[in-house]
């Protein structure tokens, strides 16, 4: 069977939704003739035409604003940020217009804003960011971050069909590095549901995006070398968070480690620690720990970026510290 890459899975998901639903269209910088900076929209202009695959000026605010306007008129726009770093230019449209519209006057804004996030490819401070928490802090938005090709396709489809604005973060490190066999039939991955990637009784490791892979490697090492069985949960969706899955695992293991590539202060790990404390404190056998990037911009030079990013060794160290409680 053919294996599908993460980036191809996103492309397939968008393609299929555009075939199935005339309301779906995509707009962004270089998405048409060029097929997108990472080729997510390759071939779409030829297939769907220039009114459904729209090359825009370099105007993120207009891209998102226009998507909002079209959504209010009954369309299902997908707004591409060429790099997710540039989403900051559209911050106001997203957080003030799109996010609050339904609450204010009942008009939902079913848009998807998607783009490549994350580091590990020497992109430097403006092509490597993980901006999720700006948006997780905004009621009215949904935020998803798939880690597998299967989820990349299932979540983009769920995001397009969702009635509310969804920020869809695709990790560029994973684009062509992972591949798997995908179901032939149409499927979605419901927004708000975590996935258990590895069962374990001793420790819960919560993560998402590209950090799933060093987390799984660390879990394998812990099992082989020390007999520590780590439960690895892929959050997949950051807003809403799958609290049930988080709390169930915390109750089971009594030890929670959160791993994310985003920077430390104000990262989702802090929020998860608070939820775990509030809800299942009596079950805990140790503090909630976190492995994150430090509170710096994402640096360019390889030794700096390597230092910045969480990796298997950093995860192992934190997991061993927690397991010792």
């Amino acid at each position: 069977m053919a294996l599908t890459t993460y980036v191809e899975a996103i492309r397939q998901g968008i393609w299929e939704e555009m075939e199935a639903d005339q309301r779906v269209f995509i707009l962004g910088e270089d998405v048409g003739i060029y097929g997108g900076a990472f080729k997510v929209t390759e071939g779409m202009l030829e297939k769907f035409g220039e009114l459904r695959v729209i090359d825009t000026p370099i105007s993120e605010s207009a891209i998102v604003g226009a998507a909002i306007g079209a959504a209010l008129m009954g369309m299902r726009p997908i707004a591409e940020m060429q790099f997710i770093d540039f989403i900051s230019c559209a911050f106001d449209q997203i957080t003030n217009f799109a996010a609050k519209n339904r609450y204010r006057w009942g008009a939902g804004v079913p848009i998807v804003i998607r783009g490549p996030s994350g580091g590990g490819v020497h992109g430097g401070p403006f092509h490597s960011q993980n901006p999720e928490m700006y948006f997780v802090h905004t009621p009215g938005l949904k935020v998803v971050a798939p880690a597998t090709a299967h989820d990349a396709k299932g979540l983009i489809k769920a995001a397009i069909r969702d009635e509310d604005p969804v920020i869809y973060l695709e990790h560029k490190y994973l684009y062509r590095r992972i591949k798997e066999e995908l179901p032939k039939e149409d499927y979605v991955v419901p927004i708000g549901q975590a996935a258990t990637r590895r069962e374990g009784r001793d420790l819960s490791l919560l993560t998402y995006g590209a950090m799933l892979y060093p987390s799984l490697e660390a879990a394998g090492t812990l099992s082989r070398e020390q007999g520590i069985e780590t439960e690895v949960i892929d959050l997949r969706s950051l807003l809403p968070l799958d609290k049930d899955a988080i709390l169930a695992s915390a109750r089971k293991t009594g030890k929670v480690l959160v791993v994310h590539e985003d920077t430390r202060t104000g990262g989702i790990a802090g929020e998860i620690a608070a939820i775990v404390n509030e809800e299942v404190f009596d079950y805990l056998d140790g503090p909630v720990l976190r492995v994150t990037a430090p509170d710096t911009p994402v640096p360019y030079s390889p030794p700096l970026e390597e230092f910045f990013l969480p990796n298997k060794d950093k995860i192992l160290a934190a997991a061993r510290r927690l397991a010792a409680y």
Partner: peptide, 24 residues
């Protein structure tokens, strides 16, 4: 009627998006 927000100017791209739909 599309509701206004306090952040002046936000309506301009949104209005463009409504018009984009008419064109499509």
């Amino acid at each position: 009627l599309v509701a206004f927000i306090s952040h002046l100017g936000d309506s301009i791209p949104v209005a463009a998006g409504t018009a984009l739909t008419f064109r499509m």
